[in-house]
Design a protein around this nucleic acid. Structure first.
Lengths: 200, 200
DNA sequence: CGATAAAATAAACAAACGTTCATTTAATTG
DNA sequence: CAATTAAATGAACGTTTGTTTATTTTATCG
């Protein structure tokens, strides 16, 4: 019933985020209690409210921060001088690396959309849409300059995103293929999808 | 507090399944109460236990029946006389048609794996693995007879499944493209992924 | 160093949950 | 047609949930 010696609000909040992230990814938002998150962090459930006003705010922050940092990371990584084939490769490599380092965030950013309240959902959805415009724009550039033979820009975009994002559901470290190998193979698969002239 | 006139156990059970399916798909298993399912069906929560021993059994049945009927449907639809390119097209068309008619079942079959108890999870997971062998086998047949130039059979299989299954998250009736058009476009996209000789 | 703010606990609250059970009525069976 | 089974309700049970609040201790600030 007293503040603990050595306690540090920022550290506790970060631990709570990580605990929530892991538990939400494993069992789902609604199935995880605040007591479970607190216990995993090493505090009591009431302490969570020092840092997050509600359970929903905790989830929303996890999702929003993930999406915003993703967009920022892409903004930094993007190289506007690349021709479409190289730009697409750059995007594929970025996406795979970024997402496999954050497979839990990716997972709940898809799986827990249902758990968001309407206004939170809208914000996250918009951020997702922003990200989806990235490969779409590359495809359209490639189609315009003749380096890609696109079957349908929107369908192809959605197919690429599904392929790339689907990796988080089956990728395992120490699997048959290294991350580098997988990345290279996916670059080739994506090049096929867009009908890239340099493939084969 | 009495049996209702005209009540029919089989019909009520079916309504409960449909209500559960819709609610689980919308909000997630853990977030949906038995009272909500009952209310949607037009009975009281206690009535559910006449038909399903537990909430988990209800979910498990939904998932298991879906996977089993999928495999049966493929068994019927499969045509062993087709050459790999036609067999792959046949599979893609089957998959799209079957899954878009059952987008809710597909959705929870992926989203609610986390909500299954261990032994139920194993069963469903095995059924999913069985289904995944279907396109894999076609790819290997095509690679063996030279009609496909496969980059990596397992990766390509996973990419195809992700693409096809990802459709359920964005497909809308009355969208820009009809179902027939989407199907035809996906057949072509998949043909590219496998490096089918007849494409282009 | 005293005052203030922060961070934690324990207890409690009201609500909700999955499930059980006694009761009543309807359907089925022989 | 009477007995049995099925199907539903309403009430209740024990448990769990998100959250609040009073209290205590620690850290920070001026």
């Amino acid at each position: 019933m007293a503040r603990r010696a050595g306690s540090n609000g920022a550290e506790t909040a970060e631990k709570l985020r990580n605990a929530a992230l892991e538990l939400f990814a494993r069992s789902g938002y609604a199935a995880v209690s605040m007591r479970a998150i607190a216990a995993k962090t090493g505090v009591q459930a009431g302490a969570i409210y020092n840092h997050f006003p509600t359970k929903q705010d905790l989830l929303n922050e996890l999702l929003q921060v993930h999406m915003e940092t993703l967009l920022e990371a892409w903004e930094e990584a993007e190289d506007l001088d690349l021709a479409p084939p190289q730009a697409l490769e750059h995007f594929v490599r970025f996406h795979i690396r970024y997402h496999l380092d954050r497979s839990r965030e990716v997972f709940i950013s898809y799986m827990e959309l249902r758990s968001l309240e309407e206004k939170n959902f809208r914000i996250i959805e918009q951020l997702r849409r922003s990200y989806e415009t990235v490969p779409r724009a590359i495809l359209e550039r490639g189609a315009a300059d003749g380096s890609f033979a696109i079957i349908d820009p929107q369908l192809t975009t959605m197919a690429i995103i599904a392929m790339l994002t689907g990796m988080t559901t089956w990728y395992r470290e120490n699997g048959r293929l290294s991350l580098d190998e997988i990345e290279a193979l996916y670059v080739r698969l994506v090049a096929r999808l867009v009908g890239q002239k340099k493939e084969d």
